[in-house]
C-alpha cells in the first residue's frame, strides 16, 4: 500500500521534471540543425510555463470558459494515469495495468484536442474587427468558421486516419507475449521482481541488469512496430510533418489559440505530459523497463524517454507540414507496415 502511494507521488513528479526538459531539448536539437544557438534548455519547457502562471488571469473568448480552462488539467491527469498504469506498483490493481487501458486514455487525449478547439473563439479570424463583408463578394458562405473549428475538423479526421499506426504498433508486443498485461510484457523481456527493490541505491548491478534485458525492440517484428509507433507518436502529438491540426500557415496554433495566462501554461504542461507518457509507454513496452520506485532505474527510464523527442525533433526539422493529401497515403502506408509487423509477430508466436 505504501509503495502504491509513494509511486503515485514520485513517478508523476519524475514525469513532470522530464517533461520540463523535453521542449527545450526539442528546440535545441532543431536550433542546432538550423545552425543557430537556440534557447536555453529550460526556457521553452519550464520558464515559459512558470511565466504564464504569473500573468493576469483573463476571461477567454469561449462559450464555456470554465470547462475550456479545465480541459488541459484533465489532459494532464489522464496522462499521469497512463504512466502510472505501467508501473509495477499499480499492477496489483489488476485490470488497469493493461495495454487496453492505456489505449483508452490516449483516446481521451485525442478527443480533448477536439473539445478544446470547439470551445475557443479567438480574435484572430472571424472576430477581427475588419470590414470585409461589405465589399459584396459574389460568393457567400453560409457560415463563418473560426480557425479553431477548422482545426477541430482536422482533429476529427486525424482520429480516424492518424491513430491506426500507433495502436497497431502497441498491439504487436501484446501478440508476441500473448497477454495484454504490462506485467507479462515486461517479464517477457527479462524484467523481474529483483529489479524492483534490491538492496542499495547506487549499484553497478543495475547497469548489468538493464543490459541483460531482451527488448522486443531488437526483434524483427518489434523493430517494425517500434518504427510504426514512432510515426504514430508524431501523428498523435500533431508535430511536424503531421501538424495539420495546428498548421502555422493557416490555423496558426489550432485549438489552443485562446488559452492565456495559467491556462496556457496548463496547455503546455499537458503537451509535455503527453510527450512523456507516450515515450514512457514505448520504453515500457518495447525495451521492457517500466518506471519504478527504484530511483536509478527511474532515472534511466526518464533519460530513455528523451530519445523519442530528440528523434522526432530531427524529423520535424527536416519536414514541411503535410496536408491531408499527403497524410492519407502516409498513414495508409504505416498502417500497412503495422499490419506487417502484426503478421510477422503472429508467425513468430505460432
Amino acid at each position: 500500500m505504501i509503495e502504491l502511494i509513494l509511486a503515485t507521488i514520485i513517478i508523476p513528479l519524475a514525469a513532470l521534471i522530464t517533461g520540463f526538459l523535453i521542449p527545450g531539448v526539442e528546440r535545441k536539437v532543431q536550433a542546432r540543425i538550423q545552425q543557430r544557438i537556440g534557447p536555453p534548455l529550460l526556457t521553452p519547457g519550464f520558464w515559459a510555463i512558470l511565466k504564464f502562471f504569473y500573468k493576469e488571469k483573463i476571461k477567454p473568448n469561449s462559450p464555456m470558459p470554465r470547462l475550456f480552462h479545465s480541459l488541459p488539467i484533465i489532459g494532464i491527469f489522464v496522462m499521469f494515469f497512463a504512466v502510472l498504469f505501467t508501473t509495477p506498483e499499480w499492477w496489483s490493481l489488476n485490470a488497469l495495468g493493461t495495454v487496453v487501458a492505456v489505449v483508452g486514455l490516449l483516446k481521451v487525449i485525442e478527443f480533448l484536442f477536439m473539445a478544446i478547439g470547439s470551445f475557443s473563439r479567438s480574435i484572430l479570424s472571424v472576430s477581427m474587427p475588419y470590414a470585409d463583408q461589405i465589399k459584396g463578394a459574389v460568393m457567400k458562405g453560409d457560415y463563418r468558421r473560426f480557425f479553431e473549428q477548422q482545426s477541430v475538423l482536422r482533429a476529427f479526421k486525424m482520429i480516424t486516419v492518424g491513430s491506426f499506426p500507433l495502436y497497431l504498433a502497441m498491439f504487436v508486443p501484446v501478440v508476441l507475449v500473448k497477454s495484454i498485461n504490462f506485467s507479462d510484457i515486461v517479464q517477457f523481456q527479462g524484467f523481474d521482481a529483483s529489479f524492483i527493490y534490491p538492496g542499495g541505491l547506487i549499484d553497478l548491478m543495475y547497469l548489468e541488469k538493464i543490459l541483460s534485458l531482451k527488448p522486443i525492440l531488437f526483434t524483427f517484428p518489434g523493430m517494425l512496430a517500434g518504427f510504426v509507433f514512432f510515426v504514430g507518436y508524431i501523428m498523435l502529438l500533431n508535430e511536424y510533418p503531421f501538424s495539420i491540426e495546428k498548421a502555422k500557415s493557416d490555423v496558426i496554433e489550432g485549438p489552443s489559440l485562446e488559452y492565456a495566462a495559467w491556462a496556457r501554461g496548463g496547455y503546455y504542461l499537458m503537451r509535455e505530459s503527453i510527450l512523456f507518457a507516450l515515450s514512457s509507454v514505448f520504453i515500457t513496452m518495447f525495451i521492457g523497463l517500466p518506471p519504478t520506485l527504484n530511483l536509478p532505474l527511474l532515472l534511466v527510464h526518464c533519460l530513455l524517454c528523451l530519445i523519442m523527442p530528440i528523434l522526432f525533433s530531427i524529423v520535424s526539422a527536416f519536414s514541411p507540414i503535410f496536408t491531408f493529401k499527403q497524410i492519407y497515403p502516409v498513414s495508409m502506408g504505416f498502417t500497412a507496415l503495422g499490419f506487417l509487423a502484426m503478421i510477422v509477430s503472429l508467425l513468430a508466436v505460432m
Partner: peptide
C-alpha cells in the same frame, strides 16, 4: 535569421496575442 537568432536571448516570436508579452 540564424545570424541574429532572437531565441538565444530567450525571446520567442509568436503570432498569438494571448501568448505575447
Amino acid at each position: 535569421s540564424p545570424r541574429y537568432d532572437l531565441e538565444q536571448y530567450k525571446v520567442i516570436l509568436t503570432w498569438n496575442p494571448r501568448e505575447a508579452d
